[in-house]
Design a protein around this nucleic acid. Structure first.
Lengths: 218, 218
DNA sequence: TCGGAACCTGAATGTTGACTCATGTTTCAA
DNA sequence: TTGAAACATGAGTCAACATTCAGGTTCCGA
């Protein structure tokens, strides 16, 4: 699998990246085109020639920048992970506590998915095309999420819970499915209402509320 | 797509099924072999010849029973949906109320996934290979689930919620991800502990519990 | 203004694998 | 017993790419 080729990270670019401005521009074009094609037609339906045509470069040029079809795909998954984490951490910055952060996070996630349908699909498909990249995506994600929950629990903002890893995966699954259902499939539903409903479930659960003040705002 | 060929369901078998015992046996062999191959290697890595070899029949025989590679795949997805729903509804039969049903359901789901990893993978991959079958799978599932929630809410067993469709998708997503994480990836973790932790989250949410009796049993 | 590094190109190669078809073989009702 | 419907078969067809390669072109420091 690995080749010890001397560079510190051989996953994204083969040597150490383009040397000239022209090269960097071409690489970006290829990445963008690949994201659009993979997102629209899926990995197996996408031919390298589709990508290079969309990018406006020759077929052979692709192999100047990538060792294989799978390599671009992996690069895209990694890129998507970074972008998603960034978007979420940004959106959650102003939250007063973890419960509010969850609320904001879901909303932001749905918005993000709607704005990046193509790349969202790439991530999902990675499960079958590049399982390792897929696992990394969620491993990185869950590690950060888990830490947030642990700290919030320590602060008493959320219940201690029985197993944070389980909670994190349940929450990621919920968001992911909602992203698919309302971000990709039915992208004209009211995001605010949906994320409120979802946050309510994640925060208060299914159990009937006792006759006291509840945690809903507005 | 549809051909009005006179049978009521042209999705699984091309005409109206095998006429002889021999035929039925061959069909079953092919379906089983296909499930195993697709589950182990994935759709695109699986060649028809792999399937027929595993089934112990000639290559051409495949096309006596299926119009195309995709058709077996779709048949498998549908079959898997029916089996999953059956397993879940069985497991939930003895539940005294919906909250308990959720608890039992998660446990049963994890067990089921562990016992059917191959077919579980087939369902996931359907999202890219046969999107329509995938949607149907979850559409059918969510319709039933939704009804359960609505009735339970009417009985006061769960909170009314803001949007049952959203709740259902969030819950399905949570289970699905837990199935992947603990059913497929790490299949030696303690299912009981995991399903307890998950059920606790789904039932009580993340919010810190007030100092009263909670809803957990045992 | 020269030389070589970086970049670009698309025809050609080679493989793979879904699907077809002409030709059997088996089953079974009459 | 028989003929035709049902079933079985695997060599051959054919189109679809991923990847290579040998031969350019552009850029830039010396």
């Amino acid at each position: 699998m690995s080749q010890h080729s001397g560079s510190e990270n051989a996953d994204v670019e083969e040597r150490s990246g383009p040397k000239t401005e022209r090269g960097r521009r071409t690489l970006r074009r290829l990445l963008d085109a690949a994201g659009e094609e993979f997102g629209a037609r899926g990995y197996h339906e996408t031919a390298i020639s589709h990508i290079t045509q969309r990018a406006g470069v020759g077929l052979g040029t692709f192999y100047v920048y990538f060792k294989s079809k799978e390599e671009v795909f992996r690069a895209l998954v990694a890129d998507m992970g970074a972008r998603t984490r960034h978007a979420l951490s940004e959106s959650v910055k102003g939250a007063a506590n973890r419960l509010e952060a969850e609320r904001l996070g879901i909303k932001a996630y749905l918005d993000f998915v709607r704005g990046h349908k193509a790349l969202y699909r790439v991530v999902m498909e990675a499960q079958f095309v590049a399982p390792e990249a897929y696992r990394d995506y969620y491993r990185t994600f869950s590690a950060a999420y888990r830490q947030e929950l642990a700290q919030a629990a320590k602060r008493g903002e959320i219940s201690p819970g029985q197993d944070d890893e389980v909670r994190v995966w349940a929450l990621m699954g919920a968001s992911t499915f909602l992203g698919l259902r309302y971000g990709v499939w039915e992208d004209d539903a009211d995001v605010v209402a949906i994320s409120e409903a979802a946050a309510d479930l994640m925060i208060n659960g299914l159990a009937p509320r006792a006759k006291k003040r509840d945690a809903s705002s507005s």
